[in-house]
Design a protein around this nucleic acid. Sequence first.
DNA 1: AATGAATGAGTTTTCATTCAT
DNA 2: AATGAATGAAAACTCATTCAT
Lengths: 206, 206, 206, 206
Amino acid sequence: MMDVPAKKRVRLSTEVRRQQILDAALTEFTALGFNAASISKIAARAGMSKANLYVHFANKDEIFETLLKDVLQPALGAWQLPPAGASVEHALDAYIDHQYEQMTPQMVSIMKLLISESHRVPELIRRWQDETVLPAHREQQARIDQYVADGALQKTPLTDNFSFIMAPVLYAVICKLIFTPEVAETERQKTRATHRQLIRLLLKAP
Amino acid sequence: MMDVPAKKRVRLSTEVRRQQILDAALTEFTALGFNAASISKIAARAGMSKANLYVHFANKDEIFETLLKDVLQPALGAWQLPPAGASVEHALDAYIDHQYEQMTPQMVSIMKLLISESHRVPELIRRWQDETVLPAHREQQARIDQYVADGALQKTPLTDNFSFIMAPVLYAVICKLIFTPEVAETERQKTRATHRQLIRLLLKAP
Amino acid sequence: MMDVPAKKRVRLSTEVRRQQILDAALTEFTALGFNAASISKIAARAGMSKANLYVHFANKDEIFETLLKDVLQPALGAWQLPPAGASVEHALDAYIDHQYEQMTPQMVSIMKLLISESHRVPELIRRWQDETVLPAHREQQARIDQYVADGALQKTPLTDNFSFIMAPVLYAVICKLIFTPEVAETERQKTRATHRQLIRLLLKAP
Amino acid sequence: MMDVPAKKRVRLSTEVRRQQILDAALTEFTALGFNAASISKIAARAGMSKANLYVHFANKDEIFETLLKDVLQPALGAWQLPPAGASVEHALDAYIDHQYEQMTPQMVSIMKLLISESHRVPELIRRWQDETVLPAHREQQARIDQYVADGALQKTPLTDNFSFIMAPVLYAVICKLIFTPEVAETERQKTRATHRQLIRLLLKAP
DNA sequence: AATGAATGAGTTTTCATTCAT
DNA sequence: AATGAATGAAAACTCATTCAT
């Protein structure tokens, strides 16, 4: 007879366990959505028993909420400020590029989660909106306004409503979520090129 | 004891019943997503027994698929051609306006469904993409190219990739799906205004 | 548009309809057993609607009962009398041969049905037993006794309990019901040969 | 109002629970057949919730399969070898006796299950046939052949095809499955007596 | 902290049967 | 007689959650 693998009962700190759970949960939730992701699989992926998972979180919703909270901290990285430099135009260019670059599969999955499951955590979303997204917008807008005031950028409808600049990026993300990979990728590249050209055009305009 | 209500059996045509089911299903699916929407509730909302629902549809997936198929026929109304007229600029303006106008709650819900559940019906989505969306894009692009050739529109990066024009609209839709109604509405109006101004600017540019 | 096939509403006599139903039911019941055979399929096979089926039979059990009643009339053909002739031994030989020959797939299926579902119709089975099987046994035994009295057959334990002679046939049937076709067929042939040889041996014995 | 019974949760080992389930399932399956036996009733009989039953078995089929597998291990006890002794004839007599003795209600039920539901587990049946039944036959036949070679038994058609000897036993079993208890019992006794006498006769034959 | 065992409340689906025409 | 539409009751199975250790 073979020895039974002798499943050890590992004892780890709460911190570690929570993180294991959240990591596993992120994978499962982004892959399947809230409902289809099961506690069983999350526990299995996190390497612990279901019951132990409930020692660390009160229920499935709490895991989800904690997860989104973590993920939403950096405001999707999206509306970060462009680094100021000698040439504002160049910086802006690099900034937009950065956004398209950042469109990783993981980020796309989280976007999907945010769209399809945000109704589960309205309070969290509201706080995220009020404390992260809107302030970031404002800060960014202030910076842009400063550039305009300084004459580093000329005033255009875009500089008046700078968050508008993310629209094409989002369009590319949504394409990834709906269309076939090939079409989505084509659309992303076309969008990116058009985006860049239009921005340049706009900044050069008299 | 109360008298038993003596529930009368209602007898309707298959056509009517199917439509009742689809209507109820659309409500439930858009409100909760595929998994969370239950056959029980759909049947209740449609005013019939669960069993009768299964007389008209083979299973939950078939309901979902039929629903999406119906909804996707008009290509979301989105990439419809701008009506040609005396002033192309004016027509374009009206066209964009139309897109923002069309952003009804129902349409927004369907968009959500499309994003969160399209993986369930990949074949349907592929056909929709290949037979509806892409052809519509092409036709629209051809029309724009004609305008440019005719000198009615001047050539810009946007006229080279005209579907790009939908990006801000989509941005507004996604805001509705994520943010609070107030913020979403504000964002929609700002986006719409910026969109219009930028288009005008672009068309006027030398 | 194509013309709809114009499903005719055929009107037939009760007799005909009942027989159509019974024929279809026999096929379905023997193929699947009582529970797995569905009214839907029986009705479809009989070429009528489910509702019409209920015009002719009160319920599923009644169909089953009627069916078995019909089938059990000839007492499975099993304990039929051996035709008397010049040589009783020869006749007996032919009789046994006949039993093995009669082991058609249909007969085997009915045997299976009889074993697995007879508990559903205990009363019917009792009547069949009392009014068909046992009388047939008795008649046959009487005939054998007569042969013995006449000296046409010599007295043996077998002639004292003649129904015993069916045991090997039944064994072959059960093999068909359990084992793989190849093994069952081999077993049937071996059994048949042994059966014949033993009978001959017995009749020749001093 | 009565106090709520406060059903205590009983906690037992997997081993025990599995056995409880198998016991209950055997009862239900043999009484009603596979389809008509419900998981609800099996769980109730086993004294646990349906859900717990699914903790121990993946589905209804797995229960059935496990059950048959367990039961088929000893090859139905049927074709076991006769113990060799001073008098082979005596041993054979005892062996046959043993078979009739062993015809317990439980064994009869399993026989019914085997006949009516074996199509559900063709692979299991094939393995049982190839690895248990046929080898047992062969071993037994070899033993008989040895007796014949030793002169302990004289060669007859029966010694050439020894498994034939089970046919009358099987006949008695089938009678139990179809006829009323009284008739079945009468038939069993008659069959047993005839069986014994014929065997003796055969062995004594010149 | 950790877990194997246990369960209530739900899910989708099926089917014999009945109703209205 | 015939049928399309309708349904109650039950089936198998799932899953988030809890209990006992």
